[in-house]
Computed example of a mutant assay.
Amino acid sequence: MSGNDSKKLKVEVPPKTIGTHSGTFHCDEVLACYMLSQHPDFQDHKILRTRNQDLLDQCDIVVDVGGVFDSNKKRFDHHQSTFNETFSSLRPELDKTEDIKLSSAGLIYVYYGETIIQEILKKLNYSTLTATELSIIFVKIYKGFIREIDGIDNGVPQFESEPRYSISTHLSNRVKNFNPDWTDTKTPEEIDELFNQAKAYVGEEFLDKIKYYGSKWLPARKIVEEAVDNRFKLHLSGEIIELQRFCPWQEHLRQIEKEIGGIEIKFVICDGGSNDFRVQCVPVKEGSFVCRKFLNKKWFGIRNEELEKVSGIDGTVFCHATGFIGGNKTREGALKMAEKSLTDED
Rank of each mutant, 00 (worst) to 15 (best):
K186W: 09
H252R: 13
E162Q: 12
E242K: 14
R164A: 14
I149D: 03
Q158P: 00
R231Y: 08
G155S: 04
V228F: 02
Q244P: 00
V175W: 07
L207A: 03
K258S: 14
K209R: 15
H252F: 05
A198R: 01
S215W: 04
P219H: 13
E160Y: 07
L194G: 00
I241S: 01
A200Q: 09
Q244E: 08
K216F: 09
D229L: 12
K199W: 02
C247K: 02
N179P: 05
W182N: 10
E190W: 12
T169C: 04
Q255F: 05
E251H: 09
Q244H: 05
G214I: 02
E242W: 05
H170D: 13
N179K: 10
L243K: 03
L243S: 07
Q250I: 03
L243C: 04
E226P: 01
N177P: 00
W217E: 07
E193L: 09
I210D: 02
V202H: 01
I152Q: 09
K199I: 01
T183I: 05
Y165F: 13
F195A: 08
K211A: 11
L234K: 12
E190M: 14
R245H: 09
I241R: 00
Q158L: 07
E204F: 03
L236M: 06
E242G: 01
E189W: 01
V202G: 10
S161K: 14
S215E: 09
K176W: 12
K176M: 12
D208L: 13
I241M: 07
E148F: 04
W217R: 10
H252S: 09
N179L: 14
I141L: 15
N230W: 06
H170S: 08
V224K: 10
T169W: 08
I146H: 04
S172I: 01
R254E: 08
Q255G: 04
D181T: 06
K143V: 03
V224G: 10
V156E: 12
E205K: 15
G238F: 06
E251W: 07
K199D: 03
K209G: 08
E204R: 08
D184E: 15
V228S: 12
P219Y: 11
A200P: 00
R245E: 07
D184F: 08
D184R: 12
P219S: 11
Q250P: 00
F206C: 10
F178M: 09
P219K: 13
G151P: 00
A198I: 02
S172Q: 03
K222M: 13
G151N: 02
V156H: 12
R147E: 11
I256S: 06
L236W: 05
Q158W: 03
E162R: 15
E162H: 09
S215K: 14
T169F: 05
D184W: 04
D192G: 13
R254A: 06
G214K: 04
K143L: 08
D208C: 03
D184Q: 12
I256A: 07
I256R: 06
